[in-house]
Design a protein around this nucleic acid. Structure first.
Lengths: 195, 195
DNA sequence: TTCGATATTGGACAGAGTGTTCGATTGAGG
DNA sequence: CCTCAATCGAACACTCTGTCCAATATCGAA
């Protein structure tokens, strides 16, 4: 049952592996469907029975490889669903998770990656941040607007941090970077106080 | 003298205008050289005598239209060359400048824009921020690394703010947003203190 | 105004990629 | 072992790219 046809699994895995390899080589934008199927040695029609384009394949990538987008919701929560409002903030799981999946993370988040995945992820991070800080903003129209602006901006900052850190094997540990990141985001909202 | 051949000026202006119109219509990624020359009613070969591709045209855009990337360096400086280290920070000229050139700003910075221009601009903003805060970081290897991380992240936050604000006609004034932006970036670095 | 320089035209070109179709083949799973 | 779905692979029309060239127009300077 739980078993989808092994042929499908194999095809999808091959395609995703090829894609991340190609991203690392030539950058996401430069990769074509042609390149992907050539490297995966998969028929053109086969590709199109599973995906409409390379964007969809990219987004399906982590799932195909059995790697979740965010760390498991149980072990500390990736920047969301935290009940404590301690100054410590909780990006550590995110950085740890990236560190544990270097190759994938580098392809999806590194300088050779595309905006599509980055944008999606950023949006999710922004949601988490918004949840965390919504208490500091009024429920008025402009209050919500400010919250959206700041969540977006803070998420962009975190993603920039993550991208820079993923890129080369940074001498800084996940713990260090995540801690600074937490503090900086807290400061970001503190500076914005009074909305 | 100062006059470059008027034919060239006209062609370049037509091309840039067509490009920004098309970006607004279908988004930067979806625009092709074909679309641009069709709308500008310019020969294919003419396009390629001036630009290698649409990316180059995009980057040349502001110059072709006689609109500087940043506000004039004299009247307050767009987030760079500030001597004071007051908490007030100076993104106001940037936001004002964007407001004064809405159509162009919307095309280049809005949600339909591409990463190319955004990335360039962000890099310049990051440089300005780096100059402003380099005093707070040690001159060691890791000090410089942290400075780079934080400048990049802060610039990303500012750009996100700018993009969100440019997108729709925000009910918030340039003054308000810029002030919050200044404060938030200051807080961002304060939170990161001790590097 | 005239004239040489040069920008533009328009068409054609090969090359690459896209997305779709279809019959033939393969192999997974009951 | 047999059925059915997945894959192949080859072809298709289409769009876009980047380059070339001879013919035409327009500019700027004398």
């Amino acid at each position: 049952m739980a078993g989808i046809d092994r042929r499908i699994q194999k095809t999808k895995r091959l395609l995703s592996e090829s894609l991340i390899a190609l991203i690392l080589e030539k950058g996401y934008e430069a990769v074509t469907v042609q390149h992907i199927i050539d490297r995966a040695d998969v028929g053109r029609s086969t590709f199109y029975t599973h995906y409409e384009n390379k964007e969809q394949l990219l987004l399906a990538g982590p799932k195909n490889l059995g790697i979740p987008l965010f760390p498991a919701d149980g072990d500390g929560a990736g920047s969301r669903h935290r009940k404590t409002k301690a100054p410590a903030f909780g990006f550590l799981p995110l950085f740890r998770h990236a560190a544990e999946n270097r190759p994938l993370a580098k392809a999806m988040l590194g300088k050779k990656s595309g905006e599509l995945f980055l944008g999606r992820m950023r949006h999710q991070v922004a949601e988490g941040i918004s949840d965390e800080f919504k208490g500091r903003f009024s429920k008025s129209k402009t209050g919500k607007l400010w919250l959206a602006y700041f969540s977006d901006a803070a998420a962009a900052a975190v993603m920039a941090m993550l991208v820079a850190w993923c890129e080369e094997d940074s001498p800084l540990s996940a713990e260090e970077v995540a801690a600074r990141c937490d503090a900086a985001v807290a400061g970001f909202f503190t500076g914005a106080k009074g909305a």
